[in-house]
Amino acid sequence: MSFPATLKTLTLETSSATTQAYAALSHDYNPLHLDADFAATTAFGAPIAHGTMALNLLMQAISETFANQPIREHLDIRFSAPVKVGETILAGGERRAGEADIYDIWVRKPDGTTTLTGTLHIEAVS
């Protein structure tokens, strides 16, 4: 099994509606995401999107790249910058030079700010 050089890049426009939907989906009603008054008292200054919503956009990019192929996925990521609700994010990745099955993965804003970074190891299942 050979792996492509890049993952499919996906885009998501975050909004109050997507944040509310993701809060319901994940049961994560942390006021950092939903309460503008509370978020204004924090270092973020405004509501931020759920980190795992960005992670899940990346999961979708991985799924669409390896559609219908039997694989195991191993991810190690960190959330490197917040995404304010209303901002757009892009998720994707590139296969690491010299590696057959390891990708450097990311979620970024259109201005290039990286909000999530990490590695993906794909293991083919025979």
């Binding site: 899940n56 999961m59 990521i77």
Partner: peptide
């Protein structure tokens, strides 16, 4: 979708540990 497992993981983590303080930060995974 495997991402739905991630969302379910968050739900379990949140429901299992209650009540919790406001403002926890998910830093890495």
């Amino acid at each position: 979708p495997r991402g739905m497992l991630v969302a379910a993981m968050m739900e379990a983590y949140i429901r299992a540990i209650q009540p919790r303080p406001k403002g926890n930060i998910h830093a890495a995974q």
